[in-house]
Computed example of a mutant assay.
Amino acid sequence: MANRSGDVKRILVVGGGLIGIRHVEAVRAHPACELVGLADPDMSIDIDAPRYMAMREAKSAAVDGVIIATPTHLHADHGAQAAALGWHMLIEKPVAGTLEDAQTLAQTLKQTQIRSLVGHHRRYHASVQQLKSLIAEGAIGQVVNVSLLWAMRKPDAYFDGNWRTAGGSPVMINLVHDIDLLRFCIGEIAQVVALSGTPLRGTDRIESGAIALTFENGATGTISFADTAPSPWGFEAATGENPNIGTTQQDMMWITGTGGAISFPSMTLWRGSDWGTPAQITPLTPAADTATPLEAQLTHFVEVMDGAAPMIDVADATRTLAVAEQIEAQLTSQHHTTRNALSA
């Protein structure tokens, strides 16, 4: 039971899906937060808390901040509503359904001086923070390239009878996290080239592909992804952060530099000189989380509401979305070209 003594932030959660309910539970357990309730038009969602059909119904309740966990295409509208009510906000990723919506929301927040945080929660992993610091300190020299792999088979039921049936591309659902991870640890992404794989489920949905990237600092990288292939490689499987995905603790990202290399999340650090001498492992203890990333993110949201600089606000998250949109557009174009060629 959370300790409600002292100053607490009153939080309204908007959206009662899987992640929304996880936010409800996190707010309830946090000693610096009090749950105002859940806003969702589906009143059959059974939780022991005040229920609202829509955000505006909670106007009379004292609210300090709102967590927006609704479908992505509603994020910008709900963010604008919260800003109009004077509520600071934590918005789930992706920050908005389109780049234009995200940019409009960023401008609204700037004008209203409402503080924001975006739910790219991987930034709160202690090991991710450690990786970013090691790279910045030059532990492997100047970064040369990075290879990232995300491959798992989503159950067929994941796509049945919901918005994912037609629009369940893993780019916006999953890879947007990996893109943000690369931006956070390696640097800003300057260019992307994407290749689409062949769909295996008999739909027009993007299911797999490969992406080449260049970074503003001169490094290059690749991402290979598939939601049709069971494998031990992917951030969720590697770190065990998602209770719905089996944990394997296998590395899923490999980074090389002019002075060595490091794999993640094992944080296996290699150092070397040239190919005449084998690279040697340098002992390194991976940093351990003292709280789950969702809990750490909520703690930070409380700090942001009090004026702290956000780890990633709407304006910053818009840059992650811009890269994801470029990738999605290229994959979609290739996918349609291939389909039309096969049907000709």
Rank of each mutant, 00 (worst) to 15 (best):
T248F: 15
A344R: 14
H120E: 10
A226I: 09
A106Y: 04
D316S: 04
Q107N: 03
E325Y: 07
N217C: 08
I179R: 00
D156P: 01
P286N: 01
M311N: 12
M55A: 04
A341I: 03
A296G: 07
T108L: 05
L12E: 07
K93A: 05
L90N: 04
S127R: 15
G276F: 08
T108H: 02
E236K: 11
I206N: 13
A82M: 11
P41H: 03
E328P: 00
E188Y: 01
V146Q: 05
Y158D: 02
R28Y: 08
P170M: 03
S263L: 03
A29G: 06
G97N: 03
M152H: 06
A2L: 02
L134K: 03
T220W: 05
H75W: 08
T165H: 11
L105I: 06
T258K: 03
S60C: 03
S147I: 15
T282L: 09
D7K: 13
S273C: 02
I47Y: 02
E241W: 13
L342G: 00
T299H: 13
K93T: 08
K110G: 01
A83V: 08
T285P: 08
G259Q: 13
I47A: 01
H30W: 10
T277D: 09
L131P: 05
T292W: 10
A190T: 10
D180K: 02
A26K: 07
Q326H: 07
G167K: 13
T268K: 12
L284P: 09
V14S: 09
T203E: 09
L12T: 11
G187N: 13
H121K: 00
G202P: 10
N162G: 09
D180L: 06
K9A: 07
M253F: 07
V13G: 07
A49R: 03
V63E: 02
H125W: 14
G97S: 02
V193W: 11
R123T: 05
I114K: 03
A237K: 15
